[in-house]
């Protein structure tokens, strides 16, 4: 008897659920897909999963992360831009895929990047260090010493990057330009930040711009030395590391942002819901805790217009940087 009533209850409950969903037809009424332009496990993927989990709790639908790596993010961006603009296909991308790629590879896109996608909002910023290796007979211990050393050893200082045209590459090239046209050599490693760290440990590279979370362990163990920080303020864990602004290079370095995007035709009401929900998601204790552990700054936008202005500014900034430091990339 007990079981029968349970079944009846469940059926009635289900029926009510369907009716109410139909009656209101409120977004979201089915699972939402979040495309991530990287393989699972990286910073962008983790941010997407944390936000997705919190948004599931507040909006009552699953936010399913789907990894679509490849072609500097173009595969994920194009798939999102071409999907139905109903708010059920979103994307979480970062400064590389959603600002640098459109600027340096415009011809690789089959869509119009600036017209076909809209930002829902910036989610987090990842601060970055200018680092040098402490071993392998590399003496510089400060930013000034690095500049002097590079001037005295023209073409001898090698810096690690995560690939041609990646932001650590542009950051160092821009740094070199701003500190007196230093002659340094780029060593590329496709294996990401961990690959660059390996190159620095083995002596193949001596300096690099890398994000705080990936390097914290090696800094603590004394293998890498941070010379300067790309962030608005100093970090409490590293009170002695000056910011770029303090060493007189305010526009050098990238605060690697992660942001949410949607297809351009998505209804304004839906975008508003997403913007509010994602902002709220980042303020939840669970998300705050996870981001704090990795030194990610939570930087939500207050309105959709603010997000739009910000993205336009980012694209303009990268156009300026890529014009100033000409890195030759075979297209």
């Amino acid at each position: 008897m007990k079981r029968l009533s349970a079944v009846v209850l469940a059926v009635v409950g289900l029926a009510c659920g369907t009716v109410s969903a139909n009656a209101q037809d409120k977004y979201p009424s089915k699972p939402v897909k979040i495309l991530v332009p990287y393989a699972p496990g990286g910073a962008t993927d983790i941010v997407a999963r944390i936000i997705g989990e919190q948004m599931r709790q507040s909006l009552g639908q699953n936010f399913v992360v789907e990894n679509k790596p490849g072609a500097f993010g173009i595969i994920a961006i194009e798939e999102m831009a071409r999907s139905k603009p109903d708010g059920y296909t979103l994307m979480v991308g970062n400064v590389s895929t959603n600002a640098i790629t459109p600027v340096i590879f415009p011809t690789k896109f089959k869509i119009n990047y600036e017209k076909d996608i809209v930002p829902v909002g910036r989610l987090v910023d990842i601060p970055e260090f200018l680092l040098v290796t402490t071993t392998n007979n590399f003496p510089p211990k400060t930013h000034a010493e690095l500049v002097d050393y590079a001037k005295q050893n023209k073409g001898k200082v090698r810096y690690g990057t995560v690939g041609v045209g990646s932001y650590p590459h542009y950051d160092m090239a821009y740094y070199a330009k701003k500190t007196g046209d230093l002659d340094m050599i780029a060593i590329h490693n496709k294996a990401g930040a961990s690959g660059v760290i390996k190159d620095m440990m083995a002596g193949d590279a001596q300096a690099a711009f890398l994000n705080v979370a990936s390097t914290a362990g090696m800094i603590k163990s004394g293998n890498l030395r941070p010379l300067a920080l790309v962030n608005e303020t100093r970090l409490p864990e590293y009170p002695d590391v000056p910011t770029m602004k303090e060493i007189g290079l305010p526009d050098v370095g990238t605060l690697a942002w992660q942001a949410m995007f949607a297809p351009a035709g998505t209804p304004k009401e839906v975008l508003e819901i997403l913007q509010k929900a994602s902002t709220a998601a980042m303020q939840t204790p669970a998300a705050q805790d996870a981001f704090k552990k990795q030194n990610f700054n939570v930087v939500p936008h207050k309105t959709l217009d603010e997000a739009k202005t910000w993205l336009a500014g980012e694209l303009a900034q990268w156009k300026k940087i890529t014009n100033e430091v000409k890195i030759e990339i075979t297209d």
Binding site: A39, P40, G41, G42, D45, I46, S194, A213, S214, A216, G217, M218, K220, S221, N223, A290, K293, Q294
Partner: peptide, 18 residues
């Protein structure tokens, strides 16, 4: 790579001091 992701999410930075 995924395991490293799982470690950093708990604030464990891979390094000799682990």
């Amino acid at each position: 790579a995924l395991m490293i992701g799982a470690m950093t999410i708990h604030g464990i930075q891979p390094g000799p001091q682990v």
